[in-house]
């Protein structure tokens, strides 16, 4: 049962690495921001899964806080790119 969870987390980690490729090569700043946003989403998803693997509910709480903080940082970067800051 546990193996399936770890396998899913491994898949998500591979996807994070692939998204980092776009983060590095992305020609414009918004490209990099959406790549970073994707990585954040995948980190949150894998944190929720790791909460089951290690039987620690605190992982899921950390995922909630991480999601809200990454939302705020994305909004600020968007404001900066749009020239409204």
């Amino acid at each position: 049962m546990i193996d399936a969870w770890i396998l899913a987390v491994l898949c998500l980690v591979v996807l994070m690495v692939l998204a980092t490729v776009r983060l590095v090569i992305g020609p414009t700043a918004p490209d990099r921001v959406i790549a970073l946003d994707t990585v954040n989403t995948l980190v949150i998803a894998s944190m929720i899964l790791l909460g089951v693997v290690y039987k620690e509910i605190i992982f899921v709480d950390v995922a909630i806080v991480y999601g809200l903080l990454s939302f705020v940082s994305t909004l600020y970067i968007a404001k900066y790119i749009g020239g409204e800051l």
């Binding site: 918004p30 989403t41 939302f71």
Partner: peptide
């Protein structure tokens, strides 16, 4: 665990849509 996972998923769905709109608007403005 189930309740907290549900809250995390709800936060994720909500914040992703809003930040996509913010980035799209910023990209077009820039």
């Amino acid at each position: 665990l189930a309740i907290h996972a549900f809250l995390a998923a709800a936060c994720l769905a909500f914040t992703n849509a809003v930040s996509a709109h913010a980035i799209a608007r910023a990209a077009h403005r820039s």
